[in-house]
Design a binder for these strands. Structure first.
Lengths: 192, 192
DNA sequence: AGGTGAGGCTAATAAGATTAGCTTTTGGCT
DNA sequence: AGCCAAAAGCTAATCTTATTAGCCTCACCT
């Protein structure tokens, strides 16, 4: 039952190479032609592994969300409260800055249903942040709002920085630490 | 000296039509062909008004930032403190939700220099939010950080919502109001 | 009348994505 | 040892878009 392909090429390898290429040249610069060259086949051969560009982007997005969940999840291990929040936020931003292309693939991508790998991956990332919030005593009714706020903050900051949208004076790392402190203090004030 | 073109078509009209079309079909769906059809000319004629797709996107982005600055600026008139913050945030989000295509054009777009209309427009929006922060007694050294935080929050929330990234339970409008209250309380705690 | 230039148009070129259909390799089976 | 079915490649062809070249015409100015 082993499905060993002729070369070392399979769907996972193609998607991983696509994600890497997107990080290097930007999501818009990821073409079927450049990806084919990267993995050493002619363009049409890629269609043996992925359904096309849309399918490729979708799989890259799912990969990105899973990797982000892994990164943030690992970073949070052993921490709680403010430390967990800081670790999660830093890990998330670092991931986006190191993998801007694959993260960009996730933007505006909607899962087709609850079993879509994209939905599963999104849920994993979501759950990690939910766990971080557990370190704060937040009323049940506020958790969803706090989660969305946190997600907006992290996503907004990381994507703005990745797009070079912060151009003026102050140090960006410092701003991010300030943002973490701001969120932490605010979340502690929301208690109960 | 009147430069009356044969038809009612000029650069501003083309850019405005492009922005409107992008809002309707998404930035990715904005093609030179569909825009030409929309304005009633053949595709190559568009090149008499804009330099090409990149140039068009750039001009749409500048238009979007100027309109956002107008909308937020108007909304803020006559308010200060928490009221100004809420008005600005609501107006910004409303603008992004009503004009997702043109706003998307601004993402990742870098001005070529300080005289680029894009830079000017970005500065206008920036200045409006700066004015909002003046209603809080924030130390000089914290203003830039607070501004970036606020921008991340608004941009993050609005783009996530525009991309349908908030799928689970709670009411989105309610989350946004919660977020405004959160930011307000946090900013008041930063005083001095 | 005549000329000029902006604004259109058609036709041609080039890049990309995708499909069709043929070929080769390879693992499994006799 | 040798066959064969399917996976994985390849070439060639098609389609969509963007862009450029070069021509045409009308509005306006003299």
């Amino acid at each position: 039952m082993s499905l060993v392909p002729r070369a070392g090429l399979n769907q996972a390898a193609v998607v991983a190479a696509g994600a890497a290429l997107a990080d290097e040249v930007g999501l818009a610069g990821l073409t079927m032609g450049s990806l084919a060259e990267r993995v050493g086949v002619r363009t049409p051969s890629l269609y043996k592994h992925v359904g096309g560009q849309d399918d490729l982007n979708r799989r890259i997005a799912a990969l990105a969300l899973n990797q982000a969940a892994d990164a943030v999840g690992s970073a949070v291990q052993g921490y709680a409260g403010r430390d967990a929040l800081a670790a999660a936020a830093r890990a998330f931003r670092a991931f986006v800055l190191e993998h801007p292309g694959r993260y960009a693939a996730t933007i505006g991508m909607e899962p087709s249903g609850p079993d879509d790998p994209l939905a599963t991956a999104g849920r994993r990332l979501h759950d990690v942040f939910t766990a971080v919030l557990r370190g704060y005593e937040i009323a049940e009714s506020d958790v969803d709002h706090a989660l969305r706020m946190l997600r907006s903050l992290c996503h907004g900051f990381a994507t703005l920085q990745a797009g070079n949208a912060f151009q003026w004076s102050a140090d960006i790392d410092e701003s991010f630490e300030w943002l973490i402190a701001f969120a932490d203090q605010g979340l502690r004030a929301v208690r109960r």
